[in-house]
Simulated scan of single mutants.
Amino acid sequence: MPTREQALIQAIFAPLTAGFEGAVHLRDDAASFTPAPGMDLVVTTDSLVADVHFLRNDDPALIAKKALRVNLSDLAAKGSVARAYLLAIALSPSEDEAWLKRFARGLEEDQERFGCALIGGDTVAKPGPLSLTITAFGEVPAGRIVRRGGGRAGDMLFVSGTIGDGALGLRAAQGKFQGQAADDLKQRYWLPQPRVELAPVLLAHAHAAMDISDGLIGDLGMLCEASGLSAEIVAEKVPLSAGARSLVAGDPSLLETCLTGGDDYEILCAIPPERAPAFAQEAAAACIPVTAIGQMVEGSNPPLCRDAAGRPMTFARSSYSHIP
């Protein structure tokens, strides 16, 4: 006779494996699948913890979607297309069956939108806050994954979308901002938009790419380090949403939050100058806005960000860090 845990898995999570034969309806110890001919497997994983990456009272469907989407963002930055994912969820005493059903509904909606399936994982309970880990699998043409370390001096640096909405959205969700701008930013914090449509454009044009999760300045530093280069960007060129611009206009110190706060899940990429027009054109055709913010340069110094007057900017920290 199945335990309550097994019954919940079959009732709530097993339907999410529909159509993926190798998941065997979550009735085995492991799943299996084979990449399509001529494709490499790409694997990424991210963990989210209540009151760190989301607020414990957030809508369970939005928590589920954010957990999946932050992984899809990583896959997209590598030029890959998502196929499947594993979910490990450590439940606190606060999550009941109704919560789990709402959570699973969020996953189901995003699976349909992004074309991937649950194929396994683990479910446990613990006394501490809710935490969950998703490991996502994607496919990319063999030998063509877009790494962080392929940047070259002279490459133009582009970002997708707008920067800073996630960090400001967290503050809005915590009640620190009010009004229409705050409401718009909260949606960006709750529901990041993985730029999956940009994956083939990156494959065609990018020397290097990564998703922006911990803050533009810090993540740019990681791309530079991997590429053995430095970079110069202009803060004024970094695209901000209307909501972010209105808050920064009222409190210029919030620009640092935008540049270093993280939770953007946009894509940072290095594009050779001769390919920049085609890259921008193809991104626009995919309905993904991209903006040039600077370039990669020779050297090993940390990347330099200049203000509107051309002066180097300094920051209290370059990005969010999970380990103080």
Rank of each mutant, 00 (worst) to 15 (best):
Y189S: 03
G166L: 07
V140W: 01
D211I: 10
L62Q: 11
L240P: 03
I323E: 13
L229K: 03
G294L: 03
S92W: 06
G38N: 05
L191N: 12
V297L: 08
G149Q: 00
A98L: 14
E21R: 07
V159H: 03
E298M: 05
G120P: 06
N57P: 02
G154N: 00
I145W: 04
A280E: 12
R317T: 10
G128C: 07
F114Y: 15
Q180G: 08
V234C: 09
A270Q: 00
G38I: 08
G166N: 06
P15C: 13
D264W: 03
A7T: 15
A153W: 02
M39D: 13
T34W: 05
L203P: 00
G151K: 00
R83E: 13
R4I: 13
G150P: 01
A90P: 08
G38A: 09
A23W: 05
L8Q: 15
A292Q: 07
D307S: 04
M210R: 13
G218N: 01
D184I: 08
R56I: 09
G310C: 04
T260W: 06
A172W: 10
R83S: 12
L91Y: 11
T17H: 06
I134D: 07
E274M: 06
M296T: 01
D264K: 06
L223R: 00
R27T: 13
A14E: 06
A11P: 09
L247R: 04
S227Q: 00
A67N: 15
E95I: 11
A316K: 11
G243R: 00
A316N: 07
V24S: 09
M210K: 14
T34P: 05
L229D: 01
C224W: 01
G106C: 06
